[in-house]
Nucleic acid binder design. Structure first.
Lengths: 334, 334
DNA sequence: ATTAGCACTCAGGGACACTGAGTGCCAGGG
DNA sequence: CCCTGGCACTCAGTGTCCCTGAGTGCTAAT
């Protein structure tokens, strides 16, 4: 149905259109690529490709432009990820290595990704679930309100205010803190749920409601809230002419964390690059390339870039993959 | 030089241009405003205003458009801040009152401001300097690295990693923590500098280098870094046609915290609204309205909005002022 | 299956004229 | 002296017409 040459034509159309932004015609195709056939032949191929929905004409008597379906096929079967050059890899590595705190790693990563791809970069904060507890602090704010501070082994600090059902005496708070630290120190948050079950025994009955409130905040909201934090950079790249009309929608999507989370979240394979094209993203004319990243093999969050459907997929995918790897490595070390 | 009527004409030009986005001519002016003179008279006035540089013509045979200088005069002498309606004030109050943590207050404030003004809103995080210390925590990360966590009386948590000159034993860290808490608890960071001077006495000579490192991070970087944090919202409003060309610059400015800090920082009076117009902002075609806000009378940070030179100044100023007041009130309560 | 040839289409761009909102200026009137 | 009505002038924007050129689809020959 689609022989070798037709696929080559589609590939050429995508490549040319991406680099010129202009509908590509049969003649220029045979010129720019080393196709040993005449324009007329290409025209026939193009007619077939159009019928199948891989390319389209903006108007009669204009060249062809890839459709979403065309880009899809291109990404899935006609192109391969373009690896970063050695120089680029080195630059990435040294740039990220200069970051100390997690905040800084994330900030640098997102800027780097925006710069490499010249598009909008998005990075999700790593989940807390796989970190281990180093220290837990409780500070009284009001009779029925304490501040819960969690310090992880990776040196991250998370806080949350907890509303207590009963008034809490200073000493009962100290006791709770001591128990929490004794039991959870060194444990991962993922395992903390089990640990907490047996933990209630060590707490006087009268204090259990308060302790329960603290536990639930620690396990649920603290660990989860963090996963929702997103950072982005490179929005200035939206000023490119591609987005002329859809601009408003994209900017709104960037502020609506929910939309972005969905874009990052719904990726398919666990260790693979995910590419969502055009309508698949819910944003007309916009594509998204994402990858999971994580320390020591297991994915803890995602990152990616967002750009016009007409983007350099191999290059973008290469950059996303490279950055995801190096971030994972950096996080694994600290 | 500029009699009453000429000023009225300028005011009318600004108002009409702001609402229609189109150069305003003499005829439409006398129609839309109750001016009891003929268009010809207005034309003469306009000629004078143009000569003085308050208005300009995009091209001959087009209406007039205010210049930066014209807007300046309008803001300084021809308009007054438009107070929010009672309903709006109530909405602001309840919306902000629902926020618990400081992060949430800031997040809600910036969104609110963007929505009220339909422009880009920027909020600077409140300075830590005027908060008092509630608790200080030190956690060892590595032999020569500790994590310093500061909890303030307003329930805020700040962290910073400290590199130590010497190896630190667990007990010396505990000791340092105890001393820090004993001496600083309840004191404001602004006063902490004095307190620290006498504090060295309580620390063994061998530990002083390490203690010094912790102190300096606490006083300098921790307190200062925080003031540099900015949050913004409403970037989708940049899609308005006004920004068609300058868009890229504005988006870049938003990512360059430095530029934004300057825009927020250089305001004149301590308690007043500041309006910077067009070239005054360093961004062609962009104006900025800022106000300080703070708990209990003293300003602790700034907030503001950024929009096209052609903006509704009275309304925007009203919104900024109102939001600044209510945020101050909310922060004062907690 | 490929190609050469040919008629056809249509967006983009230049030339042209027309319209209308707006101007500047002047001479006359309160 | 300030205002006004009148008048000639300017020019951005719009619409029409036409031409050009890149690109197409189809058909007949290889």
């Amino acid at each position: 149905m689609l022989d070798e040459r037709k696929l080559a034509v589609l590939r050429a159309v995508v490549e040319d259109y991406v680099s010129t932004t202009e509908p590509v015609g049969s003649k220029s195709l045979v010129d720019r690529h080393g196709l040993d056939v005449s324009p007329a032949t290409i025209r026939n191929d193009m007619a077939v490709l159009e019928e199948q929905g891989f390319i389209a004409q903006p108007h009669t008597s204009a060249g062809r432009v890839p459709t979403d379906k065309g880009y899809r096929l291109f990404v899935d079967r006609l192109s391969s990820v373009k690896p970063m050059s050695a120089a680029e890899r080195r630059a990435i590595e040294t740039f990220l290595a200069e970051a100390y705190s997690l905040d800084e790693v994330v900030a640098r990563t997102v800027r780097l990704l925006a710069q490499l791809t010249r598009q909008v970069a998005v990075v999700q904060y790593p989940s807390l679930r796989s970190s281990a507890v180093r220290h837990i602090e409780l500070v009284a704010l009001a009779p029925r309100r304490v501040l819960l501070v969690l310090i992880t082994d990776t040196g991250r600090v998370e806080q949350a205010a907890v509303d207590l059902p009963d008034d809490a005496h200073p000493e009962s708070i100290s006791h709770l803190r001591a128990v929490l630290n004794a039991c959870l120190d060194g444990h991962k948050l993922t395992d903390a749920a089990k640990t907490v079950v047996g933990l209630a025994d060590r707490i006087p009955v009268t204090e259990r409601p308060n302790a329960g409130a603290v536990f639930s905040v620690l396990l649920d909201s603290l660990a989860e809230r963090h996963e929702e934090r997103l950072v982005f950079a490179g929005t200035a790249n939206l000023a490119a002419p591609d987005f002329a009309n859809g601009l408003r929608d994209v900017l709104e999507a960037l502020e609506e964390q929910v939309v972005l989370m969905r874009l990052l979240g719904e990726s398919a394979g666990p260790s693979a690059l995910t590419v969502r094209i055009g309508a698949e993203t819910g944003l007309e004319g916009t594509s998204v390339v994402t990858a999971p990243y994580g320390a020591g093999g297991q994915a803890i969050a995602k990152l990616g870039v967002l750009g016009p459907t007409r983007m350099d997929y191999p290059g973008t995918m290469g950059a996303v993959r490279a950055v995801a790897r190096y971030v994972g490595r950096i996080l694994g070390e600290s």
